[in-house]
């Protein structure tokens, strides 16, 4: 089983490399520093969302509301900052958005934890609830600029380089936030008891309860944390596009879920790795952004994503089904 997990990540890595090499050969632009920086920049939001989704999936749950949380946190934060005319650091925007996300995550947690409502149905419900709340009560108007702090953040780069055409391009600083989130999630899952509890609940909820794990408290942590990550991802997304679009993101949750599942996380819970998820995100980002470089029209992207998702979930599912059929008998040969 451990071997299988390793090969799963290995497969994703191999497919990713082959895809990159193939695209690179057909279109050398792919390996240009500018394109690589663009790809990395595109991975930031999805990467952060994927870390949250990974945690939920390991715990045996399913969350489709994080995009609604992200867009709500982002939009509300921008409105607040404009309302108080705040022009200071991006950090403030980040914190406000994260707190709003946390709050919404806790709403998810209460519904799931106290009432044990199936997570997919609960979060489908809250997706509609949060987004509807945003659009009806907060606002549905497109905001075509963002507060100064966010603007400065979106223009800040870690490394800058000059392209052959003379334009200045760089690695957006948001990547640091992604790196921080990845490290935190890795440490959380690997070295803390909360991480153990998350894996335990995903492996067997009943056994976890009997071992004295407080499942509801763990679920509050999970959905609260995921909400917070959604808030962080949302505000970075807003900064990148320099706009507050209340219709943004919602409907794209599938991309993130696809990335996590392709990265080898088991939808029935209990298994999943940070590395696999990162590879999955890279694969989806490359597909979404670079298929066009090799002449695949943009309208085919969804078809390709669908096929990859079906194959990516189908192979392990089929293997599991076959393995379940193989009953062990103590055969004397």
């Amino acid at each position: 089983m451990k071997k299988f997990l390793r090969t799963n990540e290995f497969y994703v890595a191999v497919i990713l490399i082959l895809l990159c090499v193939f695209i690179g050969i057909k279109s050398p632009v792919f390996f240009s520093l500018q394109n690589v920086f663009d790809l990395l920049r595109s991975s930031i939001t999805m990467g952060i969302f994927a870390m949250g989704t990974l945690i939920v999936i390991i715990s045996g749950g399913f969350d489709v509301s994080f995009t609604a949380i992200a867009v709500s946190s982002m939009y509300i934060t921008i409105k607040i900052l404009f309302a108080i005319n705040y022009e200071g650091s991006f950090l403030v925007a980040l914190i406000i958005s994260a707190l709003i996300g946390l709050l919404m995550g806790l709403i998810n947690a209460s519904i799931i934890g106290f009432f044990r409502i199936p997570t997919l149905i609960a979060t489908l419900g809250t997706q509609s609830l949060f987004h509807g709340f945003l659009l009806f009560f907060i606002g549905s108007k497109y905001i075509n600029n963002v507060p100064d702090g966010m603007l400065r953040f979106s223009r800040s780069n870690l490394i800058t380089t000059v392209t052959p055409t003379g334009a200045i391009t760089g690695l957006q600083s948001g990547i640091l936030i992604l790196v921080a989130v990845v490290i935190v999630v890795y440490l959380l899952l690997r070295f803390t008891m909360i991480g153990r509890n998350i894996f335990a609940i995903g492996g067997s909820r009943e056994a976890a309860e009997r071992s004295g794990i407080n499942v509801i408290r763990t679920q509050f942590f999970i959905y609260g944390f995921v909400g917070m990550l959604a808030g962080i991802g949302g505000i970075i997304h807003g900064a990148h596009y320099k706009q507050g679009n209340p219709f943004d993101l919602v409907g794209t949750e599938l991309n993130t879920i696809a990335a996590v599942v392709l990265g080898g996380a088991l939808v029935t819970g209990g298994r999943g790795t940070v590395l696999g998820t990162l590879l999955g995100v890279a694969l989806v980002v490359v597909m979404n952004n670079s298929l066009i470089l090799i002449g695949v029209p943009s309208e085919w992207q969804k078809v390709v994503l669908g096929i990859i998702l079906i194959i990516g979930t189908g192979i392990p599912a089929y293997q599991n089904m076959q393995a379940a059929k193989r009953v062990k008998t103590n055969l004397a040969e």
């Binding site: 894996f199 335990a200 995903g202 492996g203 067997s204 009943e206 056994a207 976890a208 009997r210 071992s211 819970g269 209990g270 298994r271």
Partner: peptide, 11 residues
């Protein structure tokens, strides 16, 4: 020790 042992299959 319960009949089903309450173990975690993924551990």
């Amino acid at each position: 020790i319960y009949q089903d042992f309450s173990l975690f299959p993924n551990f």
